[in-house]
């Protein structure tokens, strides 16, 4: 089971979260102008990276907030956790893990 550090709530079991697939896929600016191919790309095609992959998660049982995660799809190591709207941090195992600002411990200190 993954142990995921929610940016709001700190480390929690994977069962509290929902997976949201690839991150940073923008809704097309002018969907009506897309070709069938481009529309298919938007609807059905997502990266299926073997290695560091930026993806969205929702802390559904906790704070109900979405966030981004950089995770290795082979080792399942979580390399970084960052806010929605932020750019993807540097790839690789050396990328710093964003420490959670608030943990259950921190909240009551």
């Amino acid at each position: 089971m993954l142990l995921i550090s929610c940016p709001n709530c700190g480390p929690r079991d994977e069962t509290e979260f929902h997976y949201g697939g690839q991150a940073h896929v923008a809704y097309p600016e002018n969907p009506a102008e897309l070709t069938d191919r481009e529309w298919a790309e938007y609807l059905f095609y997502r990266d299926n990276t073997k290695g560091a992959f930026a993806e969205r998660w929702l802390h559904s049982t906790g704070c109900r907030q979405w966030f981004n995660m950089l995770r290795d799809t082979v080792t399942y190591d979580i390399q970084a956790i960052y806010q929605m709207g932020q750019l993807r941090p540097a790839t690789g195992p050396t990328a710093p893990t964003v420490t959670s600002p608030v943990s259950p411990e921190g909240a009551i200190k």
């Binding site: 089971m1 994977e14 997976y19 073997k50 992959f53 993806e55 799809t73 399942y76």
Partner: peptide
């Protein structure tokens, strides 16, 4: 398992 993975293993839950 819900997440993408090439690890040939999943989560225990």
């Amino acid at each position: 398992d819900s997440y993408n993975g090439y690890g040939q293993r999943g989560s225990f839950h």
